[in-house]
Design a binder for these strands. Sequence first.
DNA 1: GAAATAGGCAACTATAGGGTTGCCTATTTC
DNA 2: GAAATAGGCAACCCTATAGTTGCCTATTTC
Lengths: 114, 114
Amino acid sequence: MSRKGRLSAAVVRDSAPVFAALGDETRLRLVARLSERGPQSIARLAEGEPVTRQAITKHLRVLADAGVARDQRRGRERLWALERRSLDEARRCLDLVSQDWDEALARLKAFVET
Amino acid sequence: MSRKGRLSAAVVRDSAPVFAALGDETRLRLVARLSERGPQSIARLAEGEPVTRQAITKHLRVLADAGVARDQRRGRERLWALERRSLDEARRCLDLVSQDWDEALARLKAFVET
DNA sequence: GAAATAGGCAACTATAGGGTTGCCTATTTC
DNA sequence: GAAATAGGCAACCCTATAGTTGCCTATTTC
């Protein structure tokens, strides 16, 4: 009983900040925009958003700190783009949860049927 | 240009709270525990955690509000288990981001090569 | 070089969130 | 039925966070 499971403490420690970064509607919308329309400037990203440019800047900072996005100065503007690594990591984390959960259910079922 | 993208406003609205729920280390650890060892009582889940049982209760409440977990009274204890639906939803959201991003990069590359 | 554009910095506000403690209730167990 | 066990409720603290406003700097553009 009590199989090891796939989710190491390290995975949890690394993924939690990424999820936290994605856990705000404005930020998730920014991620969506960046994924759909590619690298963009702050002003462009703030366009149509219900909050100020400053707020957007802060959100981008949060995404950067979580490793979800990175920026690059380009003349007078600053281009933001997604960073695949951390997003993939988060996906993998959810996959592991799924797999462990499937197995746990299977064990439970087997146990009940005994 | 500016393809529609797969991430509807609805997906963003639904997924953000799930990510927020997973965005705390303690809660993500709870999710990991539940996925590895199946349904458990609050006391059991609090075992070994560095915070009080009350804190764990609050975290479970957050997970429930996000639809990530659900509870069921069982005699004097309360069994908590994961809810697949919302976790799958979050996974799908990350998949969509990935796909859109891949396409955006491909378009960018094609554009540069012209 | 003046005007417009893109962004940075700092101070400030308000609320949500994680955590605690103290005490009370319900259900088992002996 | 007394003691142990599982959990709920409420008040409280402190910090992180989302947001704002005001103003300053750097780069384009005309």
